[in-house]
């Protein structure tokens, strides 16, 4: 049973958060191991497995990004292994600045702060893009949209990794 089936849903990239929560709570009340403490071993195991699936499903589907990743994974549309080419120049400059900061050059700090804000802005735009493409896909079921979402998700993962690196270096330096 996949995550959508576990919550009695059609596979869609856009979901109503309140409806999702309601379904999750209802099924948890029915299947939680607490309700089976005096049942036999088979029933207990079933309750445990079902609840684990429900929890895994709810955790994944309530987050639009994790949800999209899950749908693409189910469709065997795998992430790209190489970084998005349009970001290469950006990354090159960033790594230079990070290197300089590590060597003690505080003058690059404003540049890095700037980059950080740029990344945060990019992530917002990406998330907005995913939301738009998700609802388009749910209406049209156009395969090519899934591949478009894939490349946006790849970009997203890459940007958030870069953001993490920047944050780490900026914070390390603050604590010194």
């Amino acid at each position: 049973m996949n995550y959508y089936e576990a919550l009695g849903l059609q596979t869609k990239l856009t979901l109503d958060a309140d409806d999702l929560k309601k379904r999750y709570y209802e099924r948890s009340r029915q299947w939680h191991p607490d309700k089976f403490s005096r049942a036999n071993a088979d029933e207990q195991q079933k309750a445990l497995d079902t609840t684990a699936l429900l929890n895994d499903a709810y955790r994944t589907l309530r987050d639009p990004v994790a949800r999209a990743e899950y749908v693409l994974e189910e469709r065997k549309i795998h992430p790209a292994k190489t970084p998005p080419p349009e970001l290469l120049e950006e990354v090159f400059e960033l790594n230079m600045a990070l290197e300089e900061l590590r060597e003690g050059d505080q003058s690059v700090r404003p540049q890095l702060e700037n980059t950080k804000h740029k990344f945060a802005h990019m992530l917002d735009e990406i998330d907005h893009g995913i939301a738009v493409m998700s609802s388009l896909y749910d209406r049209s079921h156009d395969e090519s949209l899934l591949h478009a979402i894939r490349s946006v998700l790849d970009r997203r993962r890459y940007v958030s990794n870069l953001m993490r690196d920047v944050n780490k270096e900026l914070n390390v330096d603050l604590s010194n």
Binding site: L48, T51, A52, N55, D56, R59
Partner: peptide, 8 residues
């Protein structure tokens, strides 16, 4: 902070 039971 994953709700338990949880699996992977």
């Amino acid at each position: 902070n994953s709700t338990i039971p949880a699996s992977a």
